[in-house]
Structure formats: structure tokens, C-alpha cells
Design a protein around this nucleic acid. Sequence first.
RNA 1: CGGGGCGUAGUGUAACGGUAGCACGAGUCCUUUGGGAGGAUUUAGUCCGAGUUCAAAUCUCGGCGCCCCGACCA
Length: 414
Amino acid sequence: MRQSKLFLKTQREAPRDETAANAQLLIRANFIHKLMAGVYSFLPLGFKVKEKIIRIIREEMDKLGAEMIMPALHPKSVWEPTGRWKALSKVMYQFKDQTGREMGLGPTHEEVIAEIAKHVITSYQDLPIAVYQIQTKFRSEERPKSGLLRGREFTMKDLYSFHADDVSLEEFYDRVKESYQTVFKRCHLKSYVTEASGGDFSKYSHEFMVESPAGEDEILLCRLCGWAQNKEIAEGKAGGRCPKCGKGVLEKVSSIEVGNIFKLGTRFSEPVGLVFKDSRGATHQVIMASYGIGVERLIGTIVEEHHDERGIIWPESVAPARVHLLLIGEAAPALIKFTDRVYDDLVKAGVEVLYDDREGVSPGEKFADADLIGLPWRAVVSTKTVAADKVELKRRAETETTLVKPKEINAVIK
RNA sequence: CGGGGCGUAGUGUAACGGUAGCACGAGUCCUUUGGGAGGAUUUAGUCCGAGUUCAAAUCUCGGCGCCCCGACCA
């Protein structure tokens, strides 16, 4: 990626209104652009991050089920049997088309997947099974907030599982729980599995919480054993003993919910008529569960957790590129040639590089932009380094620099 | 949806009811090149609509939008 061609223009200052760190930094660094409250475009760098995160999620989810994709536009009819056309009327965008037909934009997909499942699941031999999608959701949030943390249009990974009995459900549910923790760990987030209410449609649920002052949720947390419970259902109190390990002291911390998993039981299969026949030919309702991760919220959370006063500090796994190559100083032909060569060699070696090849931009501005954009490694080429046939390497999170030969870069950043 | 705050150029920020100014950005020219460089010159703005007034960015009303607190959050 050559920075001169990246549709990139950083800003020295954040829009005054934005107070959330993720909004300020992602806008300043030109990763996202707000179209309206809670609705964002992902510009080239932001898009790269989103792709990285989706790739991580996909790698983990593929171990659990196959990927598919469902529509965002739904007819009212699919939402009626479960009573949710009405129940969700406040969060779902609902409207009539030109012919007066009622439809809506999907805030979630239990109804649609259950409808499809009726054509796929007929026998106990079809169970258990799970599918997932990574798809755009729409929610008419009354109050979008905190940059990417709560939007009206967002990408969600939603996984749905189908089971013949509770044992199967429990077993799979636990596997997903572990997968989720793996996903968040790979995104360099420390998440706590938190007991929570299932909201409107399930008694049991677990939320995956990342401790953050920017969060809108409050949980009771035992740092000793990691047990956590959402404050809305909390029985214990801050300062009390942890009910699980009996040793830790419960602490009240604010947090961001990056994932949520629900045991749905027959809540959706019953009204939709999703049934299967057992080995004796008897009919039973399919037991369901659903599992969600908000992709944009995950990005916002990562920025909240990984930044300093100068900008973002992307973890390697989700950074839009690994190396920010800066050509510093007057762009003399020899210097350009040297730097181009470094760039080409890195690209050939499979390293993702953002090359600040802009001419006439002062060193200070390039350094400031590099700090703001926050790639894990900074590689500087200037007259000084070229004289020694070297490149200066520095990690975004650290201050020490090292001079290495171009051929050695790969070994150092590995 | 309740409460609060705020809408001035791409961004940030001024202007008592009386000539809309400054900085950054962007364009052109010259100089400069290891932590947001200097000079010259140009560019671009009062969210929308009513009202009060000789005169409105400024006051009043309505609308729209954005942010924050709360409520809500499959």
C-alpha cells in the first residue's frame, strides 16, 4: 500500500463532538467516516482492520459450523409467528414498500434461520448442526454512542446451533464459549465470561465483557478466578466474597460487551414449527442457541484498549499492515530508489507494508501520522540510514530504535 | 424516549445586535527536509425556515443534525 494512493488524509484534530477515544482516533487517522449517528464508512485502513478481524472470527467459527449469508431485508411475515414483529418494533427498522407491503431490516436472524432450518432438519440424524454468517445488521438505536461501540448499522457474526437435546446443547454451547475467548484473545482483548440475563428471549445467556471505562455495562468481577456477573442480575455486591472461588473480593467494573451467547431452547422452533423425528419416529421440537459478536464494536474496543496520547497502537493480529515504511527527508532519486527497493522486497516476502511515499511532507508530519495510524512497526529510511545501507526499525509501543540492513528486516519483525 | 450541551470554511476556534476574523488544511511560486518547517499569494463558512429589528452568526419560535447523562439494549 502506497500511502500517496490510499484515499487517506489524517486530521490533526478530532471533531469537537467526539469524546470517545475510538471515535476520535479512528476519525483522525482516517480509518472511518461518519455518515450519520451510528453509521460509518470504513475507509481503506479501517476496511483492512475489519477484514483482519473477520478473518480471525471466520477461522474460529469454521471449526464450529459452515458459513452462509442471509438477507438484510425481511418480510413482516417471517417475524410474525414469534411475535417479534411487534416486540422489536422499537429496535427494528420497519416500513412499507411502494406497494404497501410491510417489511423490515433484520436486527438479528433467529426467525430467518429457523425458517430455513425447517427445510434442512427433519431427523435426529441431522442434529446437532450449526451455521453462521457475517452480515450487516440494522438496529434503530435510540441513542447511538461512543463511536463504533453502538451503531445503527453494523456487522455481526451470528452463529446458530440446533440440537436434539439439552446435553448436546450444553456441549456445543461450551465449545462456542471457548471459541469466543479464543477470538477475543487473538484480538488482544482480555474478556470475561459473564453471567447475564437472556433479555427478552432467553433465560440463560453469557456476555463476553472487556473491562473498559468507555463501556456502558457494569459487571461484578472477581479478579482472582475471573468469575463475573452482569450487574443487572447480580446477587452479590461489590466488596463481597466471590461466590465461585470464595476467596476473591467482588469488584464493580464498567465494561464493553463484545459478544453474547444465548440458549434459546424451543423459543423459536416452537412457533415456527421446527421439529425433527427421533429414532422411534416421534416428533420433537428442535432446541436452538444463538451466538453473536459485533465486529465494529470489537474494533472500537481494541482502539479503546490499545492507544496512547499520540494515537492507536494496533495489535499485530488486527493491524491494517505490519510495517509503516517512512521515507524521510528530501526525496532524492537515490533515496527513493533505496526505499522503493525496501518496499518491494518486503512485499515480495509477504509482509504487509504501508509505504509513506509522499513527497514534500515534513519528517515531523510523517512521524506524527505513523504514531496516529499505529502500525506495529515503523521503518525509517533517510539519507542518514542509507549512507550506512540501513533502515531504522522501531516498535510503535516502544521508544528504542535499531538500525538494520534491509535484508534483516524480516528476521527482526518476525 | 426524558434531561443537558452544541451547530460559523474540510478541521479547530473568534466576532457587544453593526465590515464574518484567525490557525491548520487545500491551490500556486520560492526556500526547507529526523518530530506536525518558513515566506509570498489564492481558496473556502454563519445547518434550514420563519419572526423581532434600520441592522441577526448573535435575540425569539419551529425544524433538522451532532455529542453527553439516564432509560432502553435480539
